[in-house]
Design a protein around this nucleic acid. Structure first.
Length: 500
RNA sequence: GGUCUCGUGGCCGAGUGGCUAGGCUGAGCUCUGCAAAAGCUCCUACAGCGGUUCGAAUCCGCUCGAGACCUCCA
C-alpha cells in the first residue's frame, strides 16, 4: 500500500474555492505545472515564496509515493508593457538599458534564478521549458484556435475571440470576475483598436521594426502573446487535462483565466483539474512587488546588503520563515520575524543532530510512550495531507524536539519505548525535516577539516578542565566563540559544538 | 467604483462551533566551575457591537480598520 492511499491529500482548488480530495487523473501519477519567473531581473523574495510553496507540493507528493512530473517554465519572451512604454517588451527594455543582447539578459537572470533556487534547496523541476524554445508549439496552438473559429487575425496579430468563446465557455470563473464588470473598467491598452471586443487578448503579436525578439509565423514576423506559452508547454509535457497548475495569486487574473479560455478553445476541455495559488508577501502590510519598488532580492537577503535588512539571513532561514505560514495566507516580512525564524530553525536542527547521534538501547518494551511517538508521526502526515499545512507540521516537529531533548537529558525514558516505535519516530523526524520540508543543514564547505581541527581543540579543553585549568579552557571556548563556533559542555563530559 | 480576502496574546503565525497550536521575545527557576544548550514555570489572545446556540475567536448581520485583484508582477 502506498502512502498516498493511507494519507490522501486534500488541497484548496482555487477554481471551486473548496478543499478537495486530490484524485490524480492517472492513478499514481501527478502532473504539476508552475508558472515560473520572467527572467528580466534578479529573483526576489516573492519568487522564493512561489517556488518554495510548490517545492513542498512536489516533495510531499513524491514522498507519498506518487510519480511526479514537475514542470516549471522560464518566461524569456518579455511581455508587453502596458502604458507609456508603447508596448515595449520587458526583456528588450532591460537589454537596451544594460546594452546587452536580449538573450544575454535572459541567460543572466535565468542563471541567477537557478542559483537562488539551489541555495533555497528548491528541487529543480523535471522539465524547465522556455518560451523561446517553444515558438513552434505556440504557433501551432494559435493555428488550432484559429481553426476552431475562436481567434481572428488583424494586421499580422492574432487575438482570441472572447465574445465568441463566451457563447460556449466561461470566463472569470477562476478569478471570480464578471465579464460585464470587466468591461466597465476596460483600459485603453496596446492594440485595443485592433480588437473586436475589449477583453480579447493577443495570441500572437506583430513585431514592430525595432523589436529584436521576433520569429516568422503564418501571420508575418512577430512574437507570441503573453498567455499562450503556458498553455502550449503544459499541453506538450503534461497533456490535456493535467492535474495541478500553480502560481502566485496575482496570476489568477488575467493570466490563468486566459489559459483556461485558450485551453478550452484549442482542446474543447478545461485544461487543468486543480488550480493552486500561493498568496503574496507583504512588507509593512503592502505587497512586495517590482512595480512598487519595495522588493528585496534574494542575494540581498543572503548578504544582508539592503537598507531594510538588519542582518544577513541564510537561505534556510528564509525557507523556514515561509514554511511557518500557510501558503494561502499573506506573509508579512520583518526583521523581527526573520530573526525569530533563524533561532527556531536552529533549535530544530540542534534536535536533529542530537537525534541522529541517538541510538535506542535495544530493550524492547512497549509502553504508553510508544503511542505518543506514534501519534506524532501520524500528525505529521495528517497535517501535510491537509492542504500542505507546513505551519502545523512544524508545530508537531517542535513537540518532537522537546521529546528528543527529554531523551537526551533523561536516557531512562528511552527504555520506555520499543525499538520499533523509536525508529519510526526517528525516521519520520529526519524525513519530514530534510526531505519533505527540505530544510538542510547549512555548513561551510570545509566542514571535514573543521571537524578534525575542532576535535583537537576539544580534547585540549577537556584536559584543561580535568586539571581545573579554567583560564585555559575558557580561553579556548571564548576564542572559538569569537569565530562563531559555540562549544557546549554536556553532562557526561562530552563536548558538542555548533556554528552560530 | 466593482469583486474578493483578512483583522488572533509584546512580535510572527496555525486553528475554526466546546478540549489554552507552535515559534520568537521578556521574567523567574533547575542543571553547570562559569557559559552555552536543554528543561520547568509565568505573561492565556482572538477588531467592535448585536444575533443564532446549552456553548462562538470559529456561524449570521452591521460597524470600523487593513490588504489584494480589476494593468506587468510570484
Amino acid at each position: 500500500m502506498q502512502l498516498y492511499e493511507k494519507y490522501p491529500v486534500y488541497l484548496t482548488n482555487s477554481l471551486t474555492r473548496n478543499k478537495e480530495k486530490f484524485e490524480p487523473i492517472t492513478p499514481g501519477y501527478v502532473g504539476i505545472y508552475l508558472c515560473g519567473p520572467t527572467v528580466y531581473g534578479d529573483p526576489h523574495l516573492g519568487h522564493a515564496r512561489s517556488a518554495i510553496s510548490f517545492d513542498i507540493v512536489n516533495r510531499y507528493f513524491r514522498h507519498l509515493g506518487y510519480k511526479v512530473r514537475y514542470v516549471r517554465n522560464i518566461t524569456d519572451v518579455g511581455h508587453l508593457e502596458n502604458d507609456a512604454d508603447e508596448g515595449e517588451d520587458k526583456i528588450l527594455k532591460k537589454a537596451r538599458l544594460e546594452q546587452l543582447e536580449p538573450m544575454q539578459v535572459v541567460q543572466l537572470y535565468t542563471n541567477s534564478y537557478r542559483r537562488a533556487m539551489e541555495q533555497l534547496n528548491v528541487l529543480p523541476p523535471d522539465i524547465e521549458p522556455t518560451a523561446t524554445g517553444h515558438i513552434i508549439e505556440q504557433i501551432e496552438l494559435t493555428k488550432k484556435i484559429l481553426e476552431q473559429g475562436l481567434a481572428y487575425e488583424v494586421n499580422g496579430s492574432v487575438y482570441f475571440d472572447l465574445k465568441k468563446y463566451l457563447a460556449t465557455g466561461k470566463y472569470g470563473e477562476l478569478s471570480g470576475k464578471v465579464v460585464e464588470d470587466l468591461l466597465v473598467n476596460t483600459r485603453d491598452t496596446e492594440g485595443m483598436e485592433e480588437k473586436r471586443f475589449p477583453l480579447d487578448f493577443a495570441l500572437w503579436k506583430k513585431a514592430q521594426p525595432q523589436h529584436i525578439m521576433r520569429w516568422p509565423s503564418p501571420w508575418g514576423e512577430g512574437f507570441p502573446g503573453w498567455h499562450i506559452e503556458c498553455t502550449a508547454m503544459s499541453a506538450k509535457y503534461l497533456g490535456v487535462p493535467f492535474d495541478i497548475h500553480g502560481g502566485g495569486m496575482d496570476l489568477q487574473f488575467p493570466h490563468h483565466e486566459c489559459e483556461i479560455a485558450q485551453g478550452f478553445g484549442a482542446f474543447g476541455k478545461s485544461p487543468v483539474k486543480y488550480w493552486m495559488h500561493n498568496n503574496m508577501l507583504t512588507i509593512s502590510g503592502q505587497k512586495m512587488a517590482k512595480s512598487l519598488g519595495n522588493f528585496i532580492n534574494l542575494q540581498q537577503f543572503f548578504t544582508g546588503n539592503h537598507p531594510l535588512l538588519a542582518q544577513a539571513y541564510s537561505p534556510m532561514t528564509i525557507r523556514f520563515f515561509m514554511l511557518q505560514a500557510h501558503y494561502r495566507s499573506t506573509l508579512d516580512f520583518s526583521n523581527e520575524a526573520l530573526q525569530a525564524a533563524e533561532k527556531a530553525l536552529k533549535r530544530l536542527t540542534n534536535s536533529l543532530t542530537t537525534l541522529q547521534k541517538m541510538e535506542h538501547p535495544g530493550a524492547n518494551r512497549s509502553t504508553e510512550l510508544d503511542a505518543t511517538l506514534h501519534s506524532y508521526v501520524e500528525q505529521l502526515y495528517q497535517n501535510m495531507s491537509d492542504d500542505f499545512n507546513t505551519a502545523k507540521t512544524l508545530a508537531v516537529l517542535f513537540d518532537m524536539s522537546a521529546r528528543i531533548n527529554e531523551f537526551k537529558s533523561d536516557r531512562t525514558r528511552l527504555y520506555e519505548t520499543s525499538t520499533e516505535a523509536f525508529q519510526q519516530f526517528k525516521i519520520a523526524y529526519e524525513v519530514f525535516i530534510q526531505d519533505v520540508l527540505g530544510l538542510k543543514e547549512e555548513t561551510g564547505q570545509d566542514h571535514q577539516l573543521l571537524e578534525g581541527t575542532l576535535r583537537i581543540l576539544i580534547e585540549l579543553r577537556k584536559k584543561a578542565r580535568a586539571e581545573r585549568n579554567f583560564a585555559l579552557s575558557d580561553k579556548i571556548r571564548d576564542d572559538l566563540k569569537a569565530l562563531g563556533i559555540q562549544l557546549m559542555d554536556g553532562k557526561d563530559g562530552e563536548i558538542n559544538w555548533t556554528l552560530e
